[in-house]
Design a protein around this nucleic acid. Structure first.
Lengths: 107, 107
DNA sequence: ATTTGGTACTTGACAATGCAAGATAGTTAT
DNA sequence: ATAACTATCTTGCATTGTCAAGTACCAAAT
């Protein structure tokens, strides 16, 4: 898939995922990969940024399969941001798809 | 609209527009602005890049409203690229929209 | 003749995002 | 012990788009 399409959408997908349930970075990388190819080197910095921007609270949980997992939990502010991005993406994808249709009709 | 959503889509919109008919930069800026906010300082460098990548041929036409207009005409290579981007965007927007739906159902 | 406004285009500094690669560290199986 | 898997995180880089500023050209109004 075109790399550029991902820009901005990753944030949306991460917010949506964590809105569904608390997740840790590695788990999230696998979840997000179902929708778009993504590298964990992309996810961790993004989680850091979104945490700095106060959309998530975090907590550690010991694991018997490796090092402790850092869980991310969305808060009110994060939910608001998520909804904004969702609405924004819907409008965006609709208008681009309509433009594409016009383009194809004229062929 | 989220600035990041535009990344990659501008190229698609420009290719689609010029696939419909030959256009010059200023005209194109107005056309593209119907879909996404965009500055002419963004469009001209993009046209230059796409021309360097051999998606367009260009020709000059005199104008009595100002300097000669540089028209961009899409070629075979450009049409192929356009179709790739269109297909790619359709798949992309569908999968993101489906993901959003899942996210909303679980609220 | 000069200003104003519309048209056409370039340049350069900048910000944001994602990627590849690698460092680090714990657990389990061989 | 070492490989393999889980898990976290950093760094340097490329790509793309933004924005401000500037160049230049023409026509009509002043």
């Amino acid at each position: 898939m075109n790399i550029q399409f991902k820009k901005g959408v990753l944030e949306l997908i991460v917010l949506c995922s964590i809105a569904k349930k608390d997740m840790y970075g590695y788990e999230l990388t696998l979840e997000v990969s179902k929708v778009v190819d993504v590298n964990d080197g992309t996810i961790y910095p993004l989680l850091k940024r979104l945490t700095n921007e106060k959309y998530f609270d975090t907590y550690l949980v010991e694991s018997n399969e490796g090092p402790p997992r850092k869980y991310y939990k969305i808060n009110e502010r994060g939910l608001k941001r998520k909804n904004e991005l969702v609405d924004s993406f819907k409008v965006f994808s609709l208008s681009v798809n309509n433009f594409i249709k016009e383009c194809e009709q004229s062929e």
